[in-house]
Amino acid sequence: MSEILRTHDLRAGYGLIEVLHGVNINVDAGEIVVVLGANGAGKTTMMRAISGMIPRTGVVDFLADDIAHLSAHKVTARGIAHVPQGRGTFPELTVEENLRIGAHSRRDSFAADIDYWYGVFPRLQERRLQRAGSLSGGEQQMLAIARALMSRPKLLLCDEPSLGLAPLVTRELFEVLQRLNSETGLSVLLVEQNANLALEIASRVYLLETGEIVSSGTPDEYMNNDAVRKSYLGH
């Protein structure tokens, strides 16, 4: 299977404080890779480092090109879409405008894509002229994912999409992610603190602790590991 993303010795932080101490991960085409980690382990920092939101050193190979020196808007143009923690929708823009701005890095016509996402998330179509700020948490998360995918990325970075969502809504969301993965071959890098549902859709799993990858394996290995179950699965 071809490799889509590989980081080598990825280091990043804020100011003088280094949060990521050399992370090595890879994502193959068509995989859903889940990174588990506690609060403050550096999950969000890792995502921001990959998408170019913060300065970083090391190697970020995307489709065999090093993108570690590119700024965020250029990373997006290469084909990585990042749904940030807390969804990051544009509250003052309407739902439809949020989707349109999602296609900002594309030069071709994207009207059909908007219709496609309205098909996937009918509730967004009902609210298409409402301000995004007026949507519920679950609707905003759907909007955030649809917006990210408007750019037709090859890799989707998803930062704790379950945060603040009811378990039922989270399940629905993960089902959509899984469907997209199997239908379109979209590769996903997902970081999660609450891992139960994430492990169900994962192809492979990494464990991030205090800025370093401490282990990796298949979802089954993690679900059967007592220490992991205690820390991340809550049972």
Binding site: M53, H73, A77, A81, T89, F90, E92, I101, H104, M150
Partner: peptide, 24 residues
């Protein structure tokens, strides 16, 4: 316009604007 939408996006949420590919 496309550029005007980008300007409003930056005003609304500059970080997310960068993430959707806007050269802020």
């Amino acid at each position: 316009t496309r550029f005007g939408l980008a300007m409003r996006a930056v005003a609304s949420n500059a970080d997310s604007a960068r993430l959707v590919g806007v050269n802020t």
